[in-house]
Design a protein around this nucleic acid. Structure first.
Length: 271
DNA sequence: CGCCAGGTGCGAA
DNA sequence: TTCGCACCTGGC
């Protein structure tokens, strides 16, 4: 399938740290594991070439997953209007979109991110998928979809530990056996949603913000990590999570999450 | 070996 | 309320 796009940058969108379960192929395409299928996607200019293990509603699935129909340009212009410094960082990753990652997988992924490294987070997610997920054959290779909540809830804690989740095994196990309602978040303000997520063991400010930003498309929350801290120190000489929080919230309000994402990407990749 | 990573929970002050 | 420390795991 081919698909015309404007203002879309596949590479930055896939590799900027929102998702874990993807591979860069030798032809500069990306193989990405979605909720119900495996896709291979390549960008040539303003065209996407997509193949998939499952062709059902493929265009709609791609448009939704990569957030192609959301208007970023207006927000970007507002961010630049608020602070001219943002022009450089937005230009450095023009076409970066916020992926609509499945919520259940997002929660597990970011519980795993706590005091962890990206390759190990990915490995644990792959192990969980291999143990509990559905196998898919695609281009003569085996892939495993991330399991549904129903399926993963049947797991025991030792198997989770064997998936190399480390000390986070108990957090995942508790979450699976709690009555936490993934869809209740939709009815909550972002502040209430943060607190609801933080009621889970293993979920603090950083993890809860990542879950809301990447899994729920809430642009008014923002994870503050080491890269953002560096940017804020170098550019504005502001230090400390609380100070950064106040500064960003006050300046960018409902678009803070996107502003932070640009800073993160810029500091991590371009300087 | 010891140190540390996309943080968080816990007990002590 | 704040502060320091432990924590699976694996790569350096």
């Amino acid at each position: 399938m081919k698909l015309k796009v404007d203002n879309f940058n596949l590479k930055d969108t896939v590799t900027c740290g929102q998702i874990f379960r993807f591979e860069e192929e030798q032809d500069n395409s990306y193989t990405v594991i979605l909720a119900d299928r495996v896709i291979n996607i390549k960008q040539v200019g303003n065209e996407l070439e997509v193949t998939s293990s499952n062709e059902d509603n493929l265009e709609e699935v791609i448009r939704n997953y990569f957030d192609l129909d959301f208007d970023y340009e207006t927000i970007n212009n507002k961010l630049i209007e608020i602070d001219k410094n943002n022009k450089e960082i937005i230009d450095s990753c023009l076409g970066l979109k916020m992926i609509n990652e499945p919520r259940f997988e997002t929660i597990i992924s970011y519980i795993l991110s706590s005091n962890n490294r990206i390759p190990q987070i990915k490995k644990a997610l792959d192990n969980i998928s291999m143990t509990y997920g559905h196998k898919v054959l695609f281009n003569n290779k085996e892939y495993y979809l991330f399991p549904t909540k129903e399926k993963l809830s049947k797991c025991d804690i030792d198997t989770l530990r064997n998936c190399k989740t480390g000390f986070r095994d108990k957090y995942i196990y508790e979450f699976l056996n709690s009555n936490f309602d993934i869809n209740k978040i939709d009815t909550l303000s972002s502040e209430d949603a943060l607190n609801y997520l933080k009621s889970l063991n293993g979920v603090g400010d950083k993890v809860a913000s990542c879950i809301l930003l990447f899994g729920y498309h809430r642009f008014d929350v923002f994870p503050i990590d080491t890269w953002v801290k560096k940017y804020m120190k170098d550019k504005y000489n502001i230090e400390g999570v609380d100070n950064i929080q106040k500064f960003v919230k006050n300046k960018y309000n409902e678009y803070s999450g996107l502003a932070i994402q640009y800073m993160f990407h810029y500091k991590r990749n371009k300087s």
